[in-house]
Design a protein around this nucleic acid. Structure first.
Lengths: 216, 216
DNA sequence: GTCTATATGAAGATAGAC
DNA sequence: GTCTATCTTCATATAGAC
């Protein structure tokens, strides 16, 4: 028996447009839960089949391999994450401060709304081959580049003050990513409340003007 | 072939006092590298044996099971992390701002100095049984409680200004934890430089006084 | 302490009937 | 589309010689 859960969330959630009808959708959802809770390598095709109400062989009528199921989950996870931060930033106006708030709210919101998808898409991505991971890697790079560009624009305009844009990307992205591990719908704060606080943290990280003689 | 690495670090590092002499130490170090790069479930005892220059059966002369090897790695990782943040805070004086700087520097420093150990101790902890994980869970809780107490003291003294102490613990802890995934000795910043920047970020998150009427 | 050899089970995946 | 049955490989772990 294991004492500790890998993540707090208990239910697997997929956006309707990412869940195909019939057995493929059931398989995807069952795999999402198992991959999130136990990890890709520790979850077997037999377990995915049992959780889908199917026999193992039936899985292979819908997905060519277990790795293809993971690839699809990683892809839809990063797709939703990329779509949501891009839409948020496009709707936020030209001020880098507004853009950061929009980006972080969307980023954190995705991790509270789809914690299992976020955990699988991030923590299990490394097992994918170059071919099966290509779509996901591209989406991930786009999202990260967008955050970097917002921060760089804020630095160029003099509204942000950090010594190193990339470290700010890493810190802001990293704190958001971890939300998926501890957030669950039973948590006393609503998703938007967590997102608002993290957006404020990101602004604080970026927008505090420090004394240049202090060495930072 | 996999395109993406799970973490940037390429070498397994253990503190001398955590690496027993002879074969047990070789086994521990080989397992650390394999568990960090591929994950616990995807790394086999055969591979650990090969990387240690031993045969699989020899492993069981030193560790009762593969899970016991992981338990030992999780324990020493959390032990070093707990030891280092406690020592840092004890040496930092009574001001919560100094304590936060000391804590985050030590926390990030541990994740840059021992990235594989940090990744394994955090990402693979969930597979341990209650018995084998007990020592680690206790250390992890101590470290987290220490950070929470520093923040609460700063709030009580009016030097920190956040709406929710636990969210600050999660954000500051989370951004530090992620460092282990991207940092490697080839990175252009030295460990202490990364640690200093992250300590400044933590101070900014906590110590920015906002307008109370703004709702945060 | 280390080895060879092996027990035992479970893994991913396929063949072919219905 | 789904099933039963099975192939093949690899997993953790053990027995017992040196």
């Amino acid at each position: 028996m294991t004492l500790n859960r890998r993540l707090a969330a208990k239910a697997a959630r997929l956006l309707p447009e990412h869940k195909p009808p019939g057995s493929p959708g059931l398989i995807l959802e069952a795999a999402l839960k198992l991959f999130a809770e136990r990890g890709y390598a520790a979850a077997s095709v037999r377990e995915i089949a049992a959780a889908s109400g199917l026999k193992p062989a039936t899985i292979y009528g819908h997905y060519p391999s277990k790795e293809h199921i993971l690839a699809e989950l990683c892809r839809v996870g990063h797709e939703e994450q990329n779509r949501s931060v891009r839409a948020a930033v496009l709707n936020s106006g030209a001020d880098p401060r507004d853009q950061i708030v929009a980006y972080v709210r969307a980023h954190v919101g995705m991790h509270t709304s789809f914690p299992m998808l976020a955990v699988v898409a991030n923590a299990e991505l490394h097992v994918l081959s170059a071919e099966l991971g290509a779509a996901t890697f591209s989406l991930r790079e786009q999202s990260e580049r967008l955050l970097g560009e917002i921060i760089q624009r804020g630095l160029d305009r003099g509204v942000f003050h950090v010594p190193n844009a990339w470290l700010a990307v890493a810190a802001i992205g990293g704190m958001g990513l971890r939300v998926a591990y501890w957030y669950s719908p039973e948590y006393r704060l609503e998703p938007h409340e967590v997102a608002d606080v993290y957006a404020e943290y990101a602004l604080r990280i970026l927008a505090v003007k420090t004394d240049p003689s202090a060495g930072l």
